[in-house]
Simulated assay, not measured.
Amino acid sequence: MIPVTSVAPQRADITRRIQDETGIDEAMIARLVDGFYARVREDAVIGPIFAARIADWTPHLEKMRAFWSSVALMTGNYHGQPMRLHAPLPIDARHFDRWLALFETTAHEICPPKAAAHFLERARRIAESLELGIAIGNGALLGKGERYRRGDEPQPAGAR
């Protein structure tokens, strides 16, 4: 087991290295998150899903800034369970595709190329992981390259 005292300096070194390589900092993360969620709120596909669950955007944006700080810079600022929060949502491949399209547009507008690529690589992995988890949670086993579409879940015996 690694002593706790050695984790913080290692994490700080990793964060500095990523910042040096990509130019990402907390201010860029805040601009990306705020710009992205401004688009989300206006979007016809995923906007209603968020609107039905988020009344006060301030705490959500703070949480998402911490999440992306942890994801992009390895800061450890986020301590949540994204799968647990997303599993009950009525979402599928179409929603993840739209989420990624909005995120990609925002990242390319706000971030320099290396930073955008860094964010997008992680966003794609997150979307893939969440989609797979939601599919499994709904009884759908996806093969390599398959996408989850609501309504494709296995039906109980005798149903149809």
Rank of each mutant, 00 (worst) to 15 (best):
P156F: 10
A51L: 02
T15F: 11
D13K: 03
H86W: 01
R16G: 10
R31N: 03
D25L: 05
E109S: 06
Y37R: 14
G76P: 14
I134A: 05
A123D: 10
P88G: 04
P48M: 01
I29Y: 02
L132T: 13
A30R: 15
R41N: 11
A12T: 11
V71F: 05
D152K: 06
E104L: 01
Q81A: 13
T58I: 07
G145A: 03
R149M: 02
A93Y: 11
I46E: 14
A87T: 13
E109W: 04
E146I: 01
R17L: 12
N138H: 11
H60E: 00
E26C: 12
F119E: 02
H95L: 09
K63E: 04
I24M: 07
N138E: 04
I2E: 15
G76M: 15
L102G: 02
P82C: 09
L142W: 08
E104Q: 04
D13N: 08
A101Q: 06
H79P: 05
R124M: 02
R98M: 08
R84Y: 12
A87C: 15
Y37K: 00
S69A: 06
G158V: 00
I46P: 02
M83E: 15
L73F: 10
A51H: 07
G23F: 08
I136R: 13
R39I: 00
G139Q: 00
T58V: 09
C111F: 03
E62S: 13
F50K: 12
Q155I: 04
I134G: 15
D92L: 08
R41F: 10
D152S: 07
G23S: 04
A140T: 14
A116E: 05
A123G: 09
D97Q: 12
A115C: 05
P113W: 07
A123S: 05
L85F: 12
F96T: 13
F103V: 15
R17Q: 14
G137R: 04
F50M: 13
P112R: 15
A157I: 10
R41S: 09
A38N: 07
L130H: 00
P48K: 00
P113D: 11
W99K: 00
T75S: 12
E128H: 15
P113I: 02
T106L: 09
P82Q: 06
G158C: 08
R53A: 03
H79Q: 12
I46V: 14
P112Q: 07
Q81M: 13
R150F: 15
P154G: 13
R149E: 13
L132Q: 11
V71P: 12
R124Y: 03
V71M: 00
P59D: 00
I54Q: 06
R147G: 09
P59Y: 04
Q155F: 07
E21F: 02
R98V: 04
G151R: 01
R41G: 03
A101F: 01
I136G: 08
I46A: 11
A87K: 14
A51W: 03
Q19Y: 11
I126M: 15
F67V: 02
W99D: 13
Y37T: 03
K63F: 08
G23D: 00
T22F: 05
G23V: 07
S69C: 14
D92M: 14
V33A: 11
L141E: 14
R125W: 14
I134K: 03
H118W: 13
L89W: 01
